[in-house]
Nucleic acid binder design. Sequence first.
DNA 1: TTAGTATATTCGTCTAACTCGAAGTCAAGA
DNA 2: TCTTGACTTCGAGTTAGACGAATATACTAA
Lengths: 140, 140
Amino acid sequence: MNYSVKEIAEKMGLTEHTIRYYTDQNLFPCKRDSNNRRVFDDQSVNWLQGIKCLRACGVSIEDIKIYCDLCLEGDVTIPERHQFMLHQQELAQERLREAQEVANYMDYKVKHYEEILANKIPDDMNPATKETPGVGKQVG
Amino acid sequence: MNYSVKEIAEKMGLTEHTIRYYTDQNLFPCKRDSNNRRVFDDQSVNWLQGIKCLRACGVSIEDIKIYCDLCLEGDVTIPERHQFMLHQQELAQERLREAQEVANYMDYKVKHYEEILANKIPDDMNPATKETPGVGKQVG
DNA sequence: TTAGTATATTCGTCTAACTCGAAGTCAAGA
DNA sequence: TCTTGACTTCGAGTTAGACGAATATACTAA
C-alpha cells in the first residue's frame, strides 16, 4: 500500500507540512516517484508512529534522528538503543515530578482565590495579591 | 532596596537577557533612573517570583501579561484572576496525565529492550525493532 | 587628564519545530 | 484547453528567550 503526503498526514494525524519536514530532516527513508513526489508505505507508517511517540515524549528531532539512525543499523545497536531509552526514561520521570508540582501549585492558587472570594481572608491581609502575582511561589 | 538588572537577575536566578526581555514586554512596572537604566525594588522581586512560577507552569508570556495586567487593576479583577487560575489548573492536570503516560511508555520501552537483551524474545519475532522505532505506540 | 574596568543600553541575529503562504510544476477530468 | 487539485521548493513568521556587537555612562587609578 502506497500513500501520498496528504494521505499519510491524514492517516497519522500530522500535518502535511510536518510530514515534509520530517522527511527533509531524513528521520526515516522516503522514496520519490518519477515526478519527484514523496511516496510512503506501511513501513513509513511504522516509522511515523514511533517518531510521533518520541515527540510526544518531548524527545528533540535531533535525538530522534540519532535513535532512528541506530534503528536503521539493525540489531547491532540494540544495546545503544537500550541506553537511549534508559536516558529518556529518566527524563520522563523528572518531567512527571515537575508536572505534579505544577498541578499542586495551581490547586493552591485556585484555593487561594476561592478563599478570598468567600471573604475568609480580608483584603488587607494579603496585599501582594492586589498588585503582584507573587503569592505561593517556588515551582519548577 | 534597589537593584540593577545584574543584581536582580542574580537574586532571582534569571539571566539579564530574560529580565530585560520581561520588562520590554511590559509584564510588570519598571522604573528607569536618570541614565535610562532599569531600577528594581522588592516589589519587582514579588512580580518576578510570580512570573517565574507561571513560566515554570508552562504559561505563555502572553497569558502572563494578561494576568499581570489584571493584578495591576486591583481587587476588582479577583473573579477574573480566579477564572484564569481555574483554566491553568485544568491545563496542569492534563499535562500531568500526559506526563504519566509518557513515563509509562518509557518504562515499557526500556523493559522491551531488556527482554531482547536477555534473549527472552528471539530477534525474528520482533522485526519492527530492527528497522523502525514503531513498537509500543500511542502516547500523547 | 587619561585610560581601564565594569556596568548598562539598544539592536539585530540565532535557535527548535514547526506553521504558513507564495510561486511554480504536473497529471487528470470536463 | 482550461481548471482543479495535489504536489514541489523556498522563504518568512512563531515563542521565549540566548547571545554578541556597538555604544554610553560612571568609577577608579595613574
